[in-house]
Design a protein around this nucleic acid. Sequence first.
DNA 1: TAAATAATCTAACACTGTTAAGCAAAGTTA
DNA 2: TAACTTTGCTTAACAGTGTTAGATTATTTA
Lengths: 198, 198
Amino acid sequence: MASKERILRLKDETRTNILAASIAIVKEEGWQALSMRKIADKIEYTAPIIYEYFSNKDAILNELTREGFVKLAKLMEIAISEHSDPAKQLEAMWLAYWNFAFAEKELYQVMYGVEMNCCAMANTCSDTQITMNMLWDKIEEIIPAEKRTEEYVDTKYYTFWSVVHGLISINMTRKSTSDELNKQVLKDAITGIISSMR
Amino acid sequence: MASKERILRLKDETRTNILAASIAIVKEEGWQALSMRKIADKIEYTAPIIYEYFSNKDAILNELTREGFVKLAKLMEIAISEHSDPAKQLEAMWLAYWNFAFAEKELYQVMYGVEMNCCAMANTCSDTQITMNMLWDKIEEIIPAEKRTEEYVDTKYYTFWSVVHGLISINMTRKSTSDELNKQVLKDAITGIISSMR
DNA sequence: TAAATAATCTAACACTGTTAAGCAAAGTTA
DNA sequence: TAACTTTGCTTAACAGTGTTAGATTATTTA
């Protein structure tokens, strides 16, 4: 009787173990090192066993993504509960989002498709720099002389870059949003930041 | 005499062909489908030949990244040349950046490590939605009633998300920037957008 | 104890990046 | 012209990947 429950509990446990082993491997060696055989090794089984719990590797990644979103939602609820003013709440929520991204870096990566793969973007090659410098210089030019410190230019530069790159990569990973909305957000952000500079 | 030059030119040509074949494959089937053997097939050689032009697969990706930055820099110079007012120039530069990202989607992906790998973020699962809704609702709450249209909330929501996600993913791929600067940009952006809402 | 079922593993397939060995044509030298 | 060297390219292999089918072992049931 109860043995059935025990078995079910055990099955559930190895399912959890698979996920835990996966995230552990990723934390140790990065996403590109995650393989079915390595997971199997860690849970002391052979690879085909995993397919009785997940239909394929993507299913594991999907489940980790789901767990990531659940965790994030919980953190946001906490953030809300710690303030009463809505504006403060919103700010705390975004801060929670930010902190989550770095506290659970690996989860954030699989949730939002950041880097994961290839070449590590090591590229500090000169060509990478050119574009940056062009933008940086132009921003510096616009900022009135009395405000023009390196720090200030840096801040504005990163703000620009973040909003534009963010909008782009959000659009690339989930392609739902309308072009109208994108252009709107983009224009708003650009003109907003520009006007804030002077 | 001249035959040496011809041969060198041919060598250069197959180098170019390798890069062209690579980007063609990626455009047809995505980054995860890019393999050495497929490239070799396309240039009508066998795989080991590629290693006489590039030390490994990463080197190909690096070269494509470099080419991407060169292209982007050129587009930005054009953007500058088409305006005289610095603010307009800067705006045109960011628009050029934006347009480049979608015109040369594959290059942008390898340049900035967007998605590339895995599971395509298909995830329209409910858990994904929860976080979004929490933020969306809170934003809606803050916006004064007279401005509160769905479009307006959407715009603000995406602006928020873009700047935060952008800042995060920039930090994850190139980990140079200081925490000070990050917090500064983040706080500035959040409070800036919040104050712009009401 | 024997049959049936569940749990697990081995072996294999078709791929991946990468390297070493070999072949055949071309160029160089005697 | 004959022998030698270099070049261009291929085949074969290694170790790894995700995934599946079949065999094997262990457990439960009759």
